[in-house]
Design a protein around this nucleic acid. Structure first.
Length: 168
DNA sequence: AAGACGATCCTG
DNA sequence: AGGATCGTCTTT
């Protein structure tokens, strides 16, 4: 039975969505029609324009635009010239928050996730609600979710110490 | 038009 | 510890 998460799931505070995504199935249909379902094992919350670790804190630009829109879409960006990182936009319009998918079962690290899923710039703004190539399906909740500080954002002042990384 | 740098990963 | 590699944003 198909149980794709609907927009209600994403239209909540990123601090609720990020831990709730742990254990859910990230589904990808590749160009050859092959469908793979990956259990999400690690996420990070980036919470709006005030969060100095969130790209949206740099303002509304062509790059960050999608985060300012309604939740339920994909925000991808290229880092270090090589890795497409996958983020799921959350919250209502103008709440510029998103969840970074840092790990899926068998693939640890956001760069590896993007490589496995064969992401590219064409995924920018893709709807998780209607897309036929990427979406999220419900799954059994995970009993124990661990937290820690977010990775690689030491520049973010007081925001760097928030325990907004969630993992199994 | 040019320069700095990043929510990373791999190699040595 | 350092290099790869390029889009985005800032500064000229």
């Amino acid at each position: 039975m198909i149980n794709r998460l609907s927009s209600d799931f994403f239209l909540r505070d990123v601090l609720e969505v990020a831990p709730d995504l742990i254990g859910k199935k990230l589904v990808r249909q590749f160009q050859d029609g092959r469908i793979e379902k990956y259990r999400i094992t690690e996420t990070e919350a980036y919470r709006g324009a005030e969060d100095l670790a969130c790209h949206a804190s740099k303002g509304r630009t062509q790059r960050t635009e999608v985060m300012f829109g309604e939740g339920g879409t994909v925000y991808v960006y290229l880092i270090y010239g090589q890795y497409w990182l996958l983020n799921l936009v959350t919250g209502p319009e103008s709440d510029a928050s998103a969840v970074l998918i840092r790990g899926i079962e068998g693939f640890s690290g956001p760069g590896r996730v993007g490589r496995e899923l064969q992401l590219d710039r064409s995924f920018y703004g893709e709807s998780l609600i209607t897309s036929s190539r990427i979406w999220v399906e419900d799954a059994e909740p995970v009993a124990e979710i661990r937290t820690s500080k977010r990775i690689g954002i030491d520049y973010a002042g007081e925001w760097k110490d928030k325990l907004w990384r969630f993992f199994i």
